[in-house]
Design a protein around this nucleic acid. Structure first.
Lengths: 144, 144
DNA sequence: ATTTGCACTTGCAATTTGCAAGTAAAATTA
DNA sequence: TAATTTTACTTGCAAATTGCAAGTGCAAAT
């Protein structure tokens, strides 16, 4: 549905086919920083994604190996969405977007402070958060 | 047309309102690495952007201060599009996308080698290319 | 047994995209 | 000087995507 024919040989263009839209990176952000992991969690996000768009984006991200579904430990009715290592590796991309926006836009003071702090030792921050995410994304793992 | 009402207070979401689509970053890539600077240059790009979409994206990027128009030194019929400092500052974002895709996708060998090389000393590469871009984007400057 | 929660799907109108053709001014060619 | 070509778009229209609202089916709670 989403995959297959690439527009060109440029990796930037096929990366954009994976997450180049208004919603995908927000879902990934929610999984990275918002502690969100279920369909309803994402639905409740500040930006108000429509339910059919959410379903379509989750499907696309899963097809592209950025996220994966698993059984929720609390209930069979719930589905736990988790970032794959490939998804976790989008952290540097998202970080650079935050750093860029911190330079050119206004935002809540606490967020601004956090970004500035992370920027001071970018590599350390990325490594630290990556490590935490890898732990978080495996700990509740039940099956696939 | 494009600007105004933001979806949330999250800088990631309003950054995506600026370049979160399938085309904007490709135009910026062409200006950074493809030595492209006119409407027809962008039209001829590998991915084949439609002319109305190109016009709309250029307008949006200009409204958001990422690019700017100037008089082409060769001809009054031509318009020279240039990256602003804000546009040049998207280099780290684009770089991280390249690095991500280099890890997970196949691509032409020479490009792969270039990315790997740039990745070795990321900061140095970014500084170097930023410097070159700042020079390039001002040298032919005529007026606004 | 009934209601609620969860993860979706479906229908439909509105917006956006993509393709093709057209336009106006500037530059080139005859 | 006139005709053609180049350049940067705009316009029209069909197709695809988005967004909103209202389901649907299964699980869990009451």
């Amino acid at each position: 549905m989403e995959a297959s024919k690439k527009r060109s040989d440029c990796p930037l263009s096929f990366s954009l086919d994976v997450f180049g839209d208004k919603w995908s990176l927000l879902i990934i952000r929610d999984m990275m920083f918002g502690n969100k992991c279920t369909y309803n969690d994402f639905l409740k996000s500040e930006e108000g994604i429509a339910t059919n768009i959410l379903a379509s984006r989750l499907k696309g991200l899963e097809e592209n190996g950025v996220i994966e579904k698993s059984v929720h430990p609390d209930s069979k009715a719930k589905i736990l969405y988790r970032l794959t290592p490939k998804g976790i590796d989008l952290l540097p991309v998202i970080m650079e977007v935050y750093i860029w926006s911190e330079k050119y836009y206004e935002m809540p003071a606490d967020l601004k402070a956090t970004i500035k702090e992370a920027k001071k030792d970018k590599d350390k921050f990325i490594k630290q958060v990556t490590k935490e995410l890898k732990i978080k994304m495996t700990e509740k793992k039940s099956s696939s």
